[in-house]
């Protein structure tokens, strides 16, 4: 257990000759919750997407549970993984998107049961049974038959979390899970994420919810301009930031959250 579950070393990534990640180092231990904070365009979402290969990285390395992400290293040479192998790596990593991305043509229940059936080859009956349990767990036991369009944003996001959990991932990635929600729906989603954290799920959460980060995160990482500006326990990074950029960001965020 001494090795971290996620280890990123000097990760770089450019879009159209613009470097958005300039050498990110990050470690997440099993059972830890890491919150990524930072202004938009700081690269936190891009970094998250790199961890499960929705984006490829240009430099550096990312390991999840000891597996090098996206490549195989043999005799000092890197070999790009095949689509199948990439899919296998993604199976271990759950992801929750800002805009939920539920499958609109399937009921909530089938959204959750789909991947276990199609990817793991579970029987549909067994997958649905587990989907029911997961829906119960996110407080939506009675909405299994509803299509995503019939659910509120908060309910959709909770189904999306259940869908990711159905694959029994080792790691959960949350990409601004509450940013697309009406303010009164934020709480129900954060409550589910908090509960998951309490159960020992390893998570990386990109968020602007300061109170949530303070309460749940073991480590808060503040990013700006494609680099990690500072990282540490929330009491330190949020409570007593050392860098001017962190201070400025937190002050602005607090005033915005007071205004809304």
């Amino acid at each position: 257990m001494s090795d971290p579950l996620v280890r990123a070393v000097n990760v770089t990534k450019s879009f159209h000759h613009q470097e958005v990640l300039k050498g990110i180092d990050l470690e997440v231990d099993t059972g830890q919750v890491v919150c990524l904070l930072g202004p938009s365009g700081s690269g936190k979402t891009t970094f998250l997407r790199c961890v499960n290969q929705l984006e490829g990285i240009d430099g550096g390395r990312i390991w999840v549970d000891g597996d090098l992400i996206g490549y195989a290293e043999r005799n000092g040479k890197l070999y790009r993984l095949k689509d199948k192998e990439i899919a296998a790596q993604r199976r271990e990593i759950g992801m929750v998107f800002q805009r939920f991305n539920l499958f609109p043509h399937m009921t909530a229940l089938d959204n959750i049961a789909e991947a276990p059936v199609q990817v793991k080859g579970e029987s549909r009956a067994a997958a649905r049974q587990r989907a029911h349990e997961l829906l119960d767990r996110v407080g939506l036991g009675d909405r299994g038959a509803a299509y995503p369009a019939q659910l509120s944003g908060g309910q959709q996001q909770r189904v999306a979390i259940a869908r990711a959990l159905a694959m029994q991932p080792k790691l959960m990635l949350f990409d601004e899970p509450t940013s697309a929600l009406d303010p009164e729906l934020v709480g129900e989603v954060l409550a589910v994420i908090k509960e998951l954290a309490g159960e020992g799920m390893t998570m990386i959460v990109v968020t602007h919810e300061m109170a949530f980060a303070r309460e749940v995160a073991d480590t808060v990482v503040f990013m700006d301009g494609g680099v990690v500006v500072e990282a540490g326990p929330p009491s330190q990074v949020i409570g007593d930031p050392q860098h001017q950029r962190t201070k400025t960001f937190l002050t602005r965020l607090r005033s915005e959250q007071h205004n809304t």
């Binding site: 929705l54 899919a87 992801m95 998107f97 991305n101 499958f103 789909e114 991947a115 990817v119």
Partner: peptide
């Protein structure tokens, strides 16, 4: 992306 993230081919 959501389907890929679930490990679908």
């Amino acid at each position: 992306e959501a389907a890929q993230a679930l490990g679908m081919s």
